[in-house]
Amino acid sequence: MVGISENIKMLREKFDLTQQDLADIAGVTNKAVSAWENGLKEPRMGAIEKIATHFNIKKSNIIEEGGMENLAQDIPFTIAAHFDGENFTEEELKEIMEYAKYIKSRRK
Rank of each mutant, 00 (worst) to 15 (best):
K108W: 04
G85R: 08
E90W: 00
D84E: 15
G66W: 02
N38A: 06
K31L: 14
N87W: 04
I96A: 14
S105N: 11
H54F: 15
A52N: 07
F15P: 02
I51A: 07
E13P: 00
S34Y: 09
A23E: 01
E95P: 00
L22Q: 11
T89R: 10
H54E: 13
G85L: 09
I57D: 10
Y102R: 07
K59A: 12
A81N: 08
S60G: 00
L40R: 03
T53G: 09
D24H: 05
N38L: 15
A26Q: 08
I57G: 07
E91I: 07
E64Q: 10
V2K: 09
G27P: 01
Q19K: 13
G67A: 05
S60F: 01
G85N: 08
N61Y: 14
I103C: 01
A23F: 02
E49R: 14
N87R: 08
K31R: 14
A47G: 05
K9P: 00
Q73F: 02
R106C: 14
K59L: 07
F88V: 05
L40A: 13
E86N: 05
N56L: 08
D24F: 02
P76F: 09
A81P: 00
E98R: 12
N87G: 02
F83A: 13
L71T: 05
V28G: 00
T78G: 10
S5Q: 09
K50V: 02
I103A: 06
A81D: 12
L40C: 00
D84Y: 15
S5M: 09
S105A: 11
L93T: 06
E64Y: 01
A47S: 15
E65W: 03
Q73N: 09
I25V: 15
V28F: 08
T29H: 07
G39Y: 04
N56R: 11
E92T: 08
L40W: 01
L11P: 10
T89W: 04
